[in-house]
């Protein structure tokens, strides 16, 4: 094999790995090699980034809210012939059902605490919505303050995120909660003016995504 074809093979081998660098899923040694490669081929880094953003945008443009319907799943599993008890309902029902089941004590408490946390978190963040939206904007009809002019994103906060931490983060980023929670614990956040540039919008979204300790998912608003 010639040296030229060997170089070509090595280049192709690297190209196969580069997309995983964009998501931080390379081993440390491969990541270091990729960094060196990108320093010499910045155009390739741009191509990868463009692809990633396009794929993420395409996915996040799909609203899963309307399809979110656990009741149908609950109905399906309740119709199964051999299954233990436990049927549908909301998180509060899940808590009560939980204590009816025989289980390992530690697992039982962990799941119970999780269910309580989810309910408590949703309620606490819901209070933030009321506080942040009503203090700045109100509609003539006294209805939802959701559509104050602006640019919006839909957010699902991380499970352990507290309302205080979320409020601090949003204040620091000059954003605010304006609606929610919707199905799946989704909230709407105003990230800026309606005419904010694409670059500013991307930067705002990136800032939110960077707070992975508080933010699980950020979707572009419609």
């Amino acid at each position: 094999m010639s040296e030229k074809s060997s170089d070509s093979d090595a280049l192709q081998e690297f190209e196969m790995l580069l997309p995983f660098h964009a998501t931080g899923r390379l081993t440390p040694s491969d990541a270091a090699r990729a960094e060196r490669y990108f320093s010499e081929h910045p155009d390739r880094l741009q191509i990868i980034d463009e692809e990633k953003y396009a794929v993420v945008d395409s996915n996040e443009a799909i609203s899963a809210r309307r399809a979110h319907n656990f009741a149908r799943v609950a109905a399906a599993i309740s119709a199964m012939p051999v299954q233990p008890s436990g049927r549908g309902g909301g998180p509060l029902n899940a808590i009560s059902r939980f204590f009816e089941l025989p289980s390992v004590q530690s697992v039982r408490w962990a799941a119970a605490v999780a269910a309580v946390l989810i309910v408590a978190q949703t309620a606490a963040i819901g209070v933030l919505v009321v506080t942040q939206s009503s203090s700045r904007f109100s509609t003539a009809s006294g209805g939802s303050a959701l559509r104050e002019p602006g640019s919006f994103v839909t957010i699902r906060f991380a499970d352990g995120a507290t309302a205080a931490a979320i409020a601090a983060m949003l204040t620091g980023l000059d954003m605010r909660l304006v609606d929610g929670p919707a199905g799946g614990g989704l909230f709407t956040v105003r990230i800026g003016d309606r005419d904010m540039s694409d670059a500013a919008r991307d930067q705002a979204i990136a800032s939110l995504r960077a707070r992975s300790d508080l933010v699980m998912v950020v979707m572009r608003g419609r």
Binding site: H68, F70, A94, L101, V107, A114, I118, G160, G184
Partner: peptide, 30 residues
């Protein structure tokens, strides 16, 4: 105590806890 992880939820689902499945659904359905 932090929120329950997926592994523990899966264990609960395997034990027949539909509430755990509901939490998994909320977390992963989108």
């Amino acid at each position: 105590t932090g929120p329950v992880g997926d592994d523990e939820l899966m264990a609960r689902v395997a034990a027949g806890d539909s509430g755990a499945l509901e939490i998994l659904y909320a977390r992963h359905h989108p």
